[in-house]
């Protein structure tokens, strides 16, 4: 009797576990087949030999990985592309960092402003931030491009006012890419920072002032440490897509201010070096994941991790 009853319970529990796994399975299979498997193929391709007209030859080679960093003299003394690679990789990292910094510069005050509005109006201010977040990235890039292009709004305005005689060339520079990325990724900074500030208990700030803290001291010692998880989350959300950005640098930087993502595209296209492209892809993915793990670990130690 006794063992029979507990047996029944174990059976029930096992059935329940099976049922739940089978519920999760379809989603897991789809992601495994169409996201994880392609990535695995990419890893394999990075160790193969390039085919003459693109694609790969099934022959093991480390050249793909080698040429991410090094140049190699082939038959003659023509210069390899490695310098160009490295400058593009370096630019990607710097532009992604600069984008993170700029979105912080504008995003933190904005998040603070929204979080300190009356409760009833906060949702509307946040709506103004979420709309650009969910609207087409391509269209938003076209919009910011319109402002600074040679025949764009700023140049037309300055020409019309007689301030300048010839249009200022702002497009296809690092600055243009930076502006574009800051513009499109700004909402990603505001959202988590706002969530953190909104949860901040302002009585703590009052307590700090009561204990003779100056405004700056209170900000540094009380407010900032408590909203830091939100800032870290925002930085990850901006840095990761910025590092692998493709559309915005392509439109704003063209061939002159290329980024990592565009370099990958180039290797699979005109470059006809799929293993190099694959190696660049895998290294970018690894970098993104490392950045993610590191920051998650850091902000797990940063107190509240509920953002």
């Amino acid at each position: 009797m006794l063992s029979e009853a507990s047996n029944g319970e174990a059976l029930l529990r096992r059935a329940e576990t099976r049922r739940r796994w089978s519920l999760a399975m379809p989603a897991l299979i789809v992601i495994a087949l169409f996201s994880i498997l392609p990535l695995a193929v990419m890893v394999v391709y990075s160790f193969l030999t390039p085919g003459t007209y693109g694609n790969v030859v099934w022959q093991f080679s480390l050249d793909g990985w080698f040429s991410v960093v090094f140049e190699r003299d082939l038959f003659d003394d023509t210069l390899g592309l490695a310098d160009a690679h490295l400058s593009i990789l370096g630019r990607s990292a710097l532009l992604a960092l600069a984008t993170t910094g700029l979105t912080m510069l504008f995003g933190l005050p904005t998040a603070w402003f929204i979080a300190t509005r009356p409760v009833a109006t906060r949702a509307y201010w946040m709506f103004l931030i979420t709309v650009p977040f969910w609207t087409n990235l391509l269209v938003r890039t076209i919009a910011i491009q319109e402002v600074i292009r040679a025949d764009g709004t700023i140049n037309r305005l300055l020409l019309g006012l007689g301030v300048i005689d010839a249009p200022i060339q702002m497009m296809f520079t690092n600055g243009a890419v930076l502006l574009g990325m800051t513009y499109v990724y700004l909402p990603l900074m505001v959202l988590p920072v706002y969530a953190a500030i909104e949860k901040f208990d302002f009585r703590l700030a009052e307590a700090a002032y009561d204990l003779h803290a100056s405004r700056f001291y209170c900000l540094r010692r009380v407010i900032f440490p408590l909203i830091r998880p939100g800032i870290v989350a925002g930085s990850i959300l901006v840095f990761i897509p910025a590092l692998g950005a493709y559309v915005t640098p392509r439109l704003m930087g063209g061939g002159r201010a290329m980024m990592w993502g565009n370099l990958i595209d180039l290797q699979f296209g005109q470059g006809r070096n799929w293993p190099l492209g694959a190696a660049l892809s895998v290294s970018l993915t690894l970098l993104v994941m490392i950045a993610l793990v590191l920051s998650v670990r850091r902000f797990a130690g940063g107190g509240r991790s509920d953002v």
């Binding site: 392609p38 990535l39 193929v41 990419m42 692998g244 993502g261 699979f268 892809s281």
Partner: peptide, 13 residues
Amino acid sequence: VPEIVLAIALMIV
């Protein structure tokens, strides 16, 4: 995964 990486990986497969 960076979108461009997923895109090209999917293209290959």
